[in-house]
């Protein structure tokens, strides 16, 4: 059913991309002055904003403090106007809670939390426009925001999704492709070492096809890493030139 529609006879996807092609990525670091770190990313029509506060003293119950490492506190939210149908989510929904938990797992794997015992690092992600790969855009934005805050990380965390049309793996799914109902794989990767921070599969997938999907997602993460790295270096050069000696 859906699989035939995902890929045209000429081998192009509905939005004109090739199977392994990513959507256009635009990113900016340091978009807010108030926060310790912040970043904005656009992946196609998916737009995400991430803000990082910390490391700072634990706010709220003192008992949450960890004696040997920092607590990573994440929040994921979607703007009222982010989806086609306007919906208010005052306290976040179940899905947002789950994604916040995944975000936390992802970043606990990447941030060197043991350097900041008894403190707390807040990562707040908001999706401004949802067009598929929301979680991935959130992770990518949060990576840049954490870096902007000067918090030590093992490596970048790059996330991308992948799906399958028949046997062809598709990278970086857009919203219609996600809605088509095929299997979707979300991968968060530490690209330099190739460590997997998060791997999520949303539907049953035959073992033989997993390899191909994983490879496509991995390649997409590496491509994203190159883009994000360019953004970071651009910013580094800009600011160090301003600071002078």
């Amino acid at each position: 059913m859906a699989a035939t529609e995902l890929l045209s006879d000429e081998g192009y996807r509905a939005d004109g991309r090739r199977p392994a092609e990513l959507r256009k990525v635009r990113a900016r670091m340091g978009v807010f002055t108030q926060a310790d770190g912040s970043a904005y990313i656009e992946q196609g029509n998916t737009k995400a904003l991430a803000v990082v506060y910390g490391p700072h003293e634990i706010r709220g119950p003192r008992s949450k403090a960890l004696p040997d490492r920092a607590l990573v506190n994440c929040r994921y939210s979607m703007a009222t106007f982010s989806t086609g149908e306007r919906r208010r989510r005052p306290h976040g929904d179940r899905q947002a809670g789950e994604l916040a938990l995944l975000l936390r797992q992802t970043f606990e794997a990447a941030i060197l939390t043991q350097l900041y015992p008894r403190s707390q690092i807040d990562i707040y992600v908001q999706i401004l426009q949802a067009d598929g790969g929301n979680y991935c855009a959130g992770v990518n934005a949060a990576t840049l925001a954490v870096m902007d805050a000067g918090i030590p990380m093992r490596d970048y965390v790059c996330a991308s999704s992948a799906g399958l049309a028949e046997d062809t793996p598709l990278a970086d799914l857009s919203s219609p492709e996600e809605a088509a109902g095929g299997p979707q794989l979300v991968l968060a990767l530490l690209p330099a070492a190739g460590h997997i921070a998060l791997l999520q599969l949303s539907a049953r997938l035959h073992q033989e096809r997993l390899e191909a999907a994983l490879e496509a997602a991995g390649a997409a993460c590496h491509a994203l890493h190159a883009v994000l790295d360019r953004v970071v270096r651009e910013r580094l050069r800009e600011v160090t030139a301003l600071l002078g000696d």
């Binding site: 970048y156 790295d229 970071v232």
Partner: peptide
């Protein structure tokens, strides 16, 4: 728009990002 010296003074610095060896 940032205003500043067009070329960094004191030579190129070694700039790195997380994960760089």
């Amino acid at each position: 728009k940032a205003v500043g010296p067009s070329a960094p003074r004191g030579g190129e610095k070694h700039l790195v990002a997380p994960g760089d060896t």
